[in-house]
Design a protein around this nucleic acid. Structure first.
Length: 257
DNA sequence: CGGCGTGTTCAGAA
DNA sequence: CTTCTGAACACGCC
């Protein structure tokens, strides 16, 4: 689930509960806390409240009133939900018990986790490893980021280069821009980069509004699970292969090599 | 049993 | 130095 739009959705969930007192934190799986123990984490948060959250790339930052912040990464299967009651799910790993209900961090695969930053400088140190957020990047900046021999898709999904784009979004954006995912970035024309930038912004804008990658059949992503899916634009059978080590879908007609 | 996956990191090879 | 590949992490579903 979690790419930039999904994390933006989680940010809104957290934003709806800023200011609520944190009664306690139930750490159901201490393995999900990175670089901090369950006891220290709970003591640091108890009695505090979250201030307005922000997002950078796939990181969700929940600042604590009075200093410090909780940084959440959702890996491939993470989720953050608000609930007032109901039994916890087996994959709920951490529950922030607030006045009035709780925020549950759920994650099946446990590939990433939650970090605790003691101050703003610590937050910046973590975020500094991520490139500019994909929603902020300008066309000229994008051209510079792509100006290397590396294939365009792995560059787009490299978080150190650009923050927020994952495997599905990259395929969607490249399909809309009619660019083959294997083309080296430095062989894209100026026009290609302009189109790529336009499509990138449009896909992100729509997905962020939905809080997810919309499962629509007019999107390439909507055809992904069909065994022999066809291009929503030209009805050619989609190609599937590996690019940058990741499963990749593209239209051989719209996105010629 | 083998393979795959909306993520990231690391070692080692080319 | 840049780029790429495979393995690892962990869990559920074919």
């Amino acid at each position: 689930m979690p790419e930039l739009p999904d994390v933006e959705g989680f940010r809104r969930v957290l934003a709806a509960h800023t200011g609520a007192r944190i009664r306690r934190v139930d750490v159901l799986d201490a393995q999900m806390l990175r670089g901090v123990g369950a006891r220290g984490f709970g003591e640091r948060l108890r009695g505090k409240s979250f201030a307005a959250p922000r997002r950078h790339g796939k990181w969700l930052v929940g600042p604590l009133r009075g200093g410090g912040a909780v940084l959440v990464h959702f890996g491939m299967t993470g989720d953050l939900r608000w609930t007032r009651d109901g039994e916890r799910h087996p994959h709920d790993r951490v529950a922030f018990v607030l006045d009035g209900g709780e925020l549950r961090y759920r994650d099946m695969r446990k590939l990433q986790g939650i970090r605790l930053a003691d101050d703003d400088a610590a937050v910046e140190r973590i975020l500094a490893e991520v490139g500019p957020d994909a929603t902020d990047v300008g066309r000229d900046e994008l051209r510079e980021l792509l100006d290397r021999r590396r294939q365009v898709k792995p560059t787009l999904t490299d978080q150190a280069v650009l923050g927020g784009i994952g495997n599905l979004l990259a395929d969607e954006i490249l399909w809309r821009a009619r660019i083959n995912p294997r083309r080296p970035g430095n062989r894209l024309s100026a026009k290609d980069v302009t189109t790529l930038h336009t499509r990138l912004r449009s896909v992100l804008r729509q997905a962020v509004a939905a809080g997810r990658v919309p499962p629509r059949t007019s999107w390439l992503t909507g055809r992904r699970d069909e065994p022999s899916g066809s291009c929503p634009r030209c009805v050619t059978t989609l190609h599937r292969g590996r690019v940058g080590g990741r499963g990749t879908v593209w239209c051989p007609n719209c996105q010629p090599g």
